[in-house]
Design a protein around this nucleic acid. Sequence first.
RNA 1: GGAGAGAUGGCCGAGUGGUCGAAGGCGCACGCCUGGAGAGCGUGUAGACGUUAAAAGCGUCUCCUGGGUUCAAAUCCCAGUCUCUCCGCCA
Length: 423
Amino acid sequence: MLDIKLVRTNPEYVRAGLAKRGMDTLVDDLLQLDQDRRERLTTVENLKNKRNIVSKEIGRLKAGKIDASNLIEEMKTVNDEIKRLDGEIRELEEKLNNLLLSIPNLPQDDVPVGRDEQANVEIRRWGTPPEFSFTPQPHWEIGEKLDILDFERGARLSGARFTVLKGLGARLERALINFMLDLHINQHGYTEILPPYMVNRDCMVGTGQLPKFEEDMYKVAPGDYFLIPTAEVPVTNLHREEILDVEHLPIKYVSYTACFRAEAGAAGRDTRGLIRQHQFNKVELVKLTTPETSAQEHETLVQDAEKVLQLLNLPYRVVLLSSGDMGFAASKCYDLEVWLPGFNTYREISSCSNFGDFQARRANLRFRREPEAKPEFVHTLNGSGLAVGRTVAAILENYQQADGSVVVPEILRPYMGGVAVIK
RNA sequence: GGAGAGAUGGCCGAGUGGUCGAAGGCGCACGCCUGGAGAGCGUGUAGACGUUAAAAGCGUCUCCUGGGUUCAAAUCCCAGUCUCUCCGCCA
């Protein structure tokens, strides 16, 4: 959520930022609602002040057995006016708040400006795409032939975009989850969180999924629950409504969860394979930090995610997303794209974002520098470390051999009971 | 699912209609004291919003949430959420 005070004091800056996202008509609406609200607020607060003073006077008179009925009558008309103004203010605040909740974050200054992924900037590449003496297969064909991925039965159980993992396929998924968690816990200093997979509406508003993207979320029938689309939601909201001690920052959490996405707008895209599923596994990194350190923490977050790909020896590149390609809540975002030989291209496997105070303001997530200091909003960051299903796809495609078998990356073998080849 | 109890400041806890944003204690900060520490003593310790260029000051709101009664609500009424205890069910 944008800071209404920033809109008020620096509307041109906000207008310019939103223009980079391809929207600019909202600032005037915000200013008008804000001004209307403040005008009425000043009036009604003066009336309430009067009411408080007179009420105390009435109390004194009654205590002294003196008649106060004329003052009580006067207050009745004042109360009618207060009630009317309070109603108007409530309406204006609701409009203002709804509008603010539907406006995306402003891009940081070093984010490339553009309308879509065409304007993204490649930052660096790591590794060399493997050469094959045969035509590399897409992962779904490899997985089906090895009888470790079962798309047909996934569809029978649940429908399109659901997959069953079997035997060493299931084992590989589980090995990756444990490998990633161990790496981030032991080498990168994150604390593991295993959160609920269903959260309430407040959490979804806090991280920015609601109110704008409700149609992409799975809603659970009894109660007002949502299936989490990413561990970002429960983990970022863990400290909502809290004021954290500055010496506890940065807080670094790593969390494995299943993720659930309706993919409502993705009909016809990535219909085969593991790339786009309604349910998938992900290991997520989340940081809460101070404003002055968030840019640096963002860089190290990306490096922590890259380390997974490096240890698995999977070629990838880092891309800085353009203003038009970034997610709603992000102020700056790097994607990691892994090389997929079956697609002959790089595909997103991790998205690492700095949200600034955008989510913190929604979730009322603050910290205090000194015991007596005024609370400030933290900066929140997160990134996949990594999407597990896509990592399975990347391993199958990069490590495939002419005979249809797949070599297990060395670092995973201890997690696979020593299995070196899936055949 | 049934029955009951409860929700007050960072924490504990008092407060059943009127100088209550809230006693007291703990914790924390600063000062005094001390060779130093502790004890002791003193002072101070919520947040949001509005007014302001900003601060100070002032005002409004907040005692789980949302409505209501009243000139006046932590306190009375209604609805909801959450926590705890007992019973039932259950991996």
